[in-house]
Design a protein around this nucleic acid. Structure first.
Lengths: 190, 190
DNA sequence: CGCCTATGTCACCGCCTGTTGACTTAAGTC
DNA sequence: GACTTAAGTCAACAGGCGGTGACATAGGCG
């Protein structure tokens, strides 16, 4: 009774609660990985009782799978102008200040891949929502090989940045690296 | 992979015990990451009481730091003939059947980077034993940029393989991808 | 209003984790 | 052979984890 409500009272709306949990899950999983993100912290982010998570999603693994489907993907990554694809992606991977939002899906994969529980879910999801669309978008001959090459580069520079967290290059060097990554992507596609 | 060590009587030899723990740590950490590898499993691998680990190394973090220094690095990765560097590395990353042994250090980094506890240790170690030597070996102009480019590619294809575990490409495609990765490395270096 | 079901809360379970300190035992020295 | 000390064992700790089932309550419907 005397307990103060910190959150502005989301009045018993199941859909909104589910959405809040899912959003918090995307954030936590992409920042801390599957093992590092506890259901309790996650629930606290969403302003929700931990027990509710299991009620709504069944288990942590199920929640992870759901979050993987619903979280932010790099918008229009494979969509926009194919001509500017290398520059766009290189820009996002190397120079963009806070790419975590756009890279949520990718970071979630990279930071959770070590976990046995999450690995299989990730593999399945990767084929359906990463390699699949990428191959289709690349089309032409050797789609599988070129898709793997592009994916390797994207993951590599994403993980490099996730590990080092920006603290290494000066601005000029960053621009150089960006051009080089664009070159690499062109090589991979071509 | 339990007691492969068929030496049931390691008769009270501190150095040998330390070495056994360190070896087991490299294996577990590179296969399961910092969070996924428990001291108990690790101790069981080494045929040792879990308490001994804390006695010898202080804490799990200290053990991880020590293992990171001592575990197998890609032998002669930056050492051999610079001319054949791209082919050698591409071969190891893409076609070699069981590169886990050679890639122990790299996998340990990739699979543990998500853990808060391990992250700082990894960053420090990376600069000292990965970017540092790589920059020195590359030398010439823009060493930092080219080192980052090479490192990004290596990490990217290592993590791609660690996630998908080989189950995707046919042999012909694998050869194609290998050539492409060698091309990428040449682009990165040049 | 009064009910009844969906929604949210709470206490608790069993398990596993890293770490510690007291204990036992083997090896090396005199 | 007795003693000392390094090396290894054991049980237990405090805390966190994912997950469950019993309870409380709000809100729409009759």
């Amino acid at each position: 009774m005397s307990c103060v409500e910190a959150t502005p009272a989301r009045s018993r709306n199941a859909a909104a609660t589910r959405a809040a949990i899912l959003k918090a899950a995307c954030g936590r999983f992409s920042r801390e990985g599957y093992d590092g993100a506890s259901l309790r912290d996650l629930a606290s982010d969403a302003g929700v009782d931990p027990a509710l998570i299991c009620r709504y999603f069944g288990s942590k693994e199920d929640l992870f799978a759901e979050a993987l489907k619903n979280c932010a993907s790099p918008p229009d990554l494979f969509g926009g102008d194919p001509k500017s694809f290398p520059e766009r992606v290189a820009q996002m991977l190397v120079v963009e200040p806070k790419p975590e939002g756009k890279l949520e899906h990718l970071l979630m994969v990279l930071r959770s891949a070590a976990s046995t529980k999450a690995a299989e879910i990730i593999r399945r999801n990767n084929r359906e929502t990463f390699y699949g669309p990428l191959e289709e978008w690349l089309g032409a001959p050797d789609a599988a090989v070129r898709a793997r090459a592009v994916a390797g580069i994207i993951m590599g520079f994403a993980v490099a940045r996730a590990i080092d967290d920006d603290a290494m290059l000066q601005d000029g060097e960053r621009q150089q690296l960006c051009r080089k990554v664009a070159d690499l992507l062109r090589t991979a596609i071509g």
